[in-house]
C-alpha cells in the first residue's frame, strides 16, 4: 500500500491576545492508500487543526511549519488556485454538523450541480439524473423528491448522506471526516458508518477519520493515531490500540471506557486536566498527569518510535508501563 498523505514535522501556532497557542507540536503521520486511519483525541488536542491544516483552511492568526505531502506535492507550498482544485475534488471533507456546510437557500440538487460545475466533472446522463444516482448510492430513500428539498427539510442523518453524496460526485481519493457522526443518534450513526465502509470498499477511498469517540474508532478504523495536547503519542493497528495500548495516556483512555458495571469496577480516573497550550508542560506533554513520569519525561520530548512492527509510541517508559 502506498502512502497517499504524509505529514512531516508539522507545527501550528495560533496568535491570540493571551499569547501564542502551540496547538500542533511536531506531528508526523502517514495515511496509507485505501485505509481508514482514525485520529482520536479529546477536545482541544488539535485533531481538527490538523484536518484544517491539510485543507489549508486555518484562520489567519495561524502559522504553519512543516510539510504536508499529498501524492508527492507539498500542499503547504501550492498556490491557492492549485489548492482550490484539490479541495473537494482530490480531498473531500465532511463535518460534524452538515447543516452549516449546506447552503440553506438552495435545494440539494442545486448545490450538487455547483459541485459538477466547479470541478467540471464529466457526466454521462443529465446532471439531475447523475445527482439522483448519487443520492441512491448513499441510500437516500425517494431520491428524486429528496433532491428537490432544502437542507432544513432533511433530518441530520439525511443531511450527512447528502454531504457524502456531494463528496462522491467528484470521487476524491482522500476523505477527511471530522466527527461525522457525533451529532447523530446511534441507529443513524451505524448507518453512516456503514456507508463510509462501503465507500472504502467500492471506491477505494482513503479515509482520515477524526473523532473523540473510541466506539466509532473500534467500528471502522484500520489504524489509529492517538493525539494528546498537540502531539501524537501512539500509532498502531486498531486491535493493538484496544488490546495492547503502550502509551500511558492510551491505556488510561481505554480503561476509562464504561465497560463492566459500577458494582464491579471503578472507571479509570486520569487525574488533572488537559494542559493549557499557551504554556504547555515541557518535555512529554502528558507528564503532569502520568503515573509513570520521572525527570526524563520533563526534560525532552520523547521521539515517536516503532516498538513493535507497525506500532509506534512516543514514551520513554514503554515496556516499563506494561508490567507496572
Amino acid at each position: 500500500m502506498g502512502v497517499i498523505l504524509k505529514i512531516e514535522d508539522l507545527y501550528v501556532d495560533f496568535k491570540t491576545e493571551r499569547g501564542l497557542v502551540k496547538a500542533i507540536d511536531g506531528v508526523t503521520l502517514e495515511v496509507k492508500e485505501g485505509e481508514v486511519l482514525a485520529l482520536i483525541g479529546e477536545t482541544g488536542c488539535g485533531k481538527s487543526t490538523i484536518s484544517k491544516a491539510i485543507m489549508r483552511l486555518l484562520p489567519k492568526n495561524a502559522t504553519v511549519r512543516g510539510k504536508i505531502i499529498y501524492k508527492g506535492k507539498n500542499l503547504l507550498e501550492l498556490p491557492e488556485s492549485e489548492m482550490r482544485k484539490i479541495r473537494g475534488k482530490e480531498i473531500g471533507m465532511i463535518f460534524q454538523d452538515p447543516l452549516t456546510s449546506l447552503n440553506p437557500v438552495f435545494t440539494v440538487s442545486n448545490q450538487m450541480e455547483e459541485m459538477f460545475k466547479i470541478h467540471k466533472l464529466p457526466t454521462r446522463k443529465s446532471i439531475f439524473e447523475e445527482i439522483v444516482n448519487l443520492l441512491k448510492i448513499v441510500r437516500i430513500p425517494d431520491a428524486e423528491s429528496r433532491a428537490k428539498s432544502y437542507p432544513f427539510e432533511l433530518s441530520g442523518g439525511m443531511r450527512q448522506r447528502v454531504m457524502v453524496a456531494m463528496m462522491l460526485s467528484s470521487n476524491p481519493s482522500l476523505l477527511i471526516a471530522d466527527e461525522p457522526t457525533t451529532a447523530l443518534d446511534v441507529t443513524i450513526q451505524a448507518q453512516i458508518m456503514n456507508l463510509m465502509l462501503e465507500l472504502k470498499r467500492n471506491f477505494n477511498t482513503t479515509i482520515l477519520l477524526i473523532t473523540h469517540n473510541p466506539g466509532v474508532v473500534a467500528e471502522i478504523a484500520d489504524r489509529v493515531a492517538v493525539m494528546y495536547a498537540g502531539q501524537i503519542v501512539e500509532v498502531a493497528p486498531v486491535k493493538e490500540v484496544f488490546d495492547n495500548p503502550l502509551h500511558p495516556y492510551t491505556r488510561s483512555l481505554m480503561r476509562a471506557l464504561p465497560k463492566g458495571h459500577k458494582t464491579e469496577r471503578e472507571l479509570e480516573n486520569i487525574l488533572g486536566r488537559v494542559p493549557n497550550l499557551l504554556t504547555p508542560p515541557p518535555g512529554c506533554r502528558f507528564h503532569p498527569r502520568c503515573p509513570f513520569a520521572d525527570e526524563r519525561c520533563t526534560g525532552g520530548k520523547p521521539e515517536i518510535k516503532e516498538v513493535e512492527p507497525g506500532h509506534f509510541v512516543a514514551c520513554y517508559k514503554v515496556g516499563g508501563t506494561r508490567n507496572e
Binding site: 446511534v186 441507529t187 451505524a190 466506539g215 473500534a218 467500528e219 486498531v238
Partner: peptide, 26 residues
Amino acid sequence: AYLLLSTPALHPEKRTSEQVVLHGEV
C-alpha cells in the same frame, strides 16, 4: 436489541454487523 446492536463497539472485534443495522428513521 437494535439499540444495543447499533451502539458503537467498545472493541474492534465486536463491530456492528451490517445485517443488524436498523433501517429508516424515527
